[in-house]
Design a protein around this nucleic acid. Structure first.
Lengths: 234, 234, 234, 234
DNA sequence: TATGAATGAGCCTTCATTCAT
DNA sequence: AATGAATGAAGGCTCATTCAT
């Protein structure tokens, strides 16, 4: 081995694993491919991380950590900014974490994957990263809703899901978007435009949502427990 | 084998494949598991469909057909209904196709999967099913936007994506939603409530969007060129 | 594959496994080697037996079954034979099962191995095969001891162990016996001679054992429970 | 590493190897496990002993030396003791070497293993340790047989094997004995009781064996030639 | 003297696939 | 039309061993 490569096998492994896991998912990715890509031996994974799942778990931690460090949810945000600007920062950083290219580009991809195909590492990820992110967003959304809406309201929760859903969609459906609307690009400027649209759409919705959460209480009596989300067009 | 089961093998195979492919994805699903679930021989798949990919392709066609037949986008819709009701019907049927349980419930799940992890069958699926669905939605959205908005506008496209994103999110992030907000249920009533929220949120947004697409252009001047979404084919 | 070999893969696998497991033990034997020896594919083991342990378990059953069928403990025994003749038959068949060459030669070897390095299959083997064999031997031994000795006595048990120990030794220490006493052969005649010696030695011991089981009671009081075996030279 | 542990590595390695090799055998024992148990680095084995086999060989020498030093065959024996007492001492020390617990208890276990699964170290072990032990036992046995029996007689050899067989059996079949006769214990008192039984059984046999080896010759006439044991070098 | 890191061979197992009937 | 049997490729993992310090 070359001198320069000594000692950073672990780092190279994480690098390669990030790319491949985020591209193919936990199951479909193979240790062999990761090692080949990292120019490391197959056994190195088991030496450094115990097993495939250990590598994945270490990667998740690394990915979320570095992704959030690189694109924090308050990116480029002046102190004391209004909820509109904060929502934009939140959405924009969200998209950048998922769609950004270059190093640590797999952070958001991994997150998205983990949500859809949970591995046993999900619990830890949720607790450590998702919950705080979700709470932050609910705070912004509640403020935008106004009218004494609180972060814990069912309606606030549902609206936050609406925002996140828009963000994840552009990542998850990249492939089909490329076919349906080839004009949409995923470069820096395209991401910016997408973030602006999502922010505008969401703010427009939030500022004009029918105010009554009472509706929920009223009608949900019919089926009882299972609802918990704001009612429809009335 | 019992006499009664003769000839059903192909059907049973598709049935089982639907459940398992939609649950685990193409790669993670195994031919063995499908055959076991269908009470068929391992070789049956290759006899009837050539290979695993052939089964998947056949399934896709079958699934979309039957899914759209069962939950059409105009479900329970009175003729001449307004765009709000049409949006609700669209969203509700969308959710039912993805979240519904029981027979032929895997239609939407498969579609969602295909969008995220495209197989070589994607092109055909997009052309045959996604494009018409997308066009239909864009029609509804344009009508809700009003102001001479057209189905082909970049803004209309972006808003349609916002709607679809919300729908797919609740399916794709079931696992994490279950942890973050255990009160959200995915039974019939829960799906209804979700559909109502998404419709309300989206209508509220559409009816109050800043009227001009120029707004987006204006602000994006900071970075100049390729703005992605903002630049439609028009 | 040749016509003649079709369908007997399972049999060939068991054959090869018998030879190799009995030679090297469960852990050291490899599926690959067994399959190579059986001219079968590596996957065949898992098709027919589930996994390596399944093959081993199936083999054990087969081995004991066929070994006892081929060399029953009452081999060549006239009805109404005395306990000396019955002991000889028991010992002789024991040796033949362990040392016999040719097909099913690994029956006794496997048994001996299993006793020394128990796998998780031991429990079943003990219950199904060892217990009956042990009881039969204890019956013979008790008769030879005379003096109202019973099969369940501690002394009877200890004496039975003495007999079995002699039998197993010649198998287990083949390698070193071959070095210490090269004149000892393990062919048919050699086995016969060994059986005669063990029978003579054991009968001589049994017929002349100090009669008192009371000795046990008397002295064992010093240490209490843990003894259970007849006392020494007094 | 702590200062105090420096230099002990080799010793600790042998200690751990003894325990593990004697418990699992050469193949099943792993260098990693030994090193972990010895709190040494994986590479330490190869540094101190070249390779796994080297460690094993070094262990064998050490083990037999220390085992025989700790439990000599003339253990607690008054000078000028009779052959009965000498036989008891021989048997008792034999059992203690194999069944004893605590430090250096693996001496006999390793020996027993080596006899059954000979490694390339067998020749040396036989020559250096087994041969002298066997000769000593044959001397005792010949004396017990009386009637001008000599240590080199075929009958003496066979009887010595009968004694050793009984001893090894209780060690080798510990697992199954524990199931068949749970009252047999392998603690100090249990070992004593076992030694007494084996001595009593063997003395009873030896003192009453049919006086002439011709008896064996006579009857074996059925097959004529190579009778194995019956034909000594004499 | 001693070690953390890395390696390549080999293990058991599982997979989609094909063969012969 | 359908199946039980068999196959080869590849998967994750573990092993004894070596390297560079």
């Amino acid at each position: 081995m070359l001198q320069a490569e000594q000692g950073d096998t672990k780092k190279r492994l994480l690098e390669a694993a990030g790319e491949i896991f985020s591209e193919k998912g936990f199951k479909a990715a193979t240790v062999r491919e990761i090692c080949r890509s990292a120019k490391a031996n197959v056994a190195a994974v088991h030496y450094h991380f115990g097993d495939k799942a250990g590598l994945y778990k270490a990667l998740l931690a690394e990915a979320f950590e570095s992704g959030l460090r690189r694109y924090p949810t308050t990116m480029n945000l002046a102190p004391g900014a209004g909820c509109g600007e904060r929502l934009f920062a939140y959405v924009h950083s969200f998209l950048l974490r998922m769609l950004g290219s270059g190093r640590t580009a797999w952070c958001g991809k991994l997150m998205a994957r983990e949500l859809h195909e949970p591995t046993e590492a999900l619990d830890h990820v949720v607790e450590r990263y998702i919950v705080p992110l979700a709470e932050e967003l609910r705070g912004i959304v509640a403020e935008a809703l106004g009218n004494r809406a609180k972060a814990g309201d069912a309606r606030t929760l549902a609206c936050a899901m609406s925002v996140v859903g828009q963000c994840q969609y552009v990542f998850r459906s990249r492939a089909v978007i490329g076919r349906l609307a080839p004009q949409v690009r995923f470069d820096e400027a395209g991401i910016l435009a997408l973030a602006r649209h999502i922010t505008a759409f969401s703010l427009s919705a939030l500022k004009n949502m029918p105010p009554e959460p009472e509706a929920m209480q009223r009608e949900s009596g019919s089926r009882g427990a299972s609802v918990g989300i704001a009612e429809g067009p009335a």
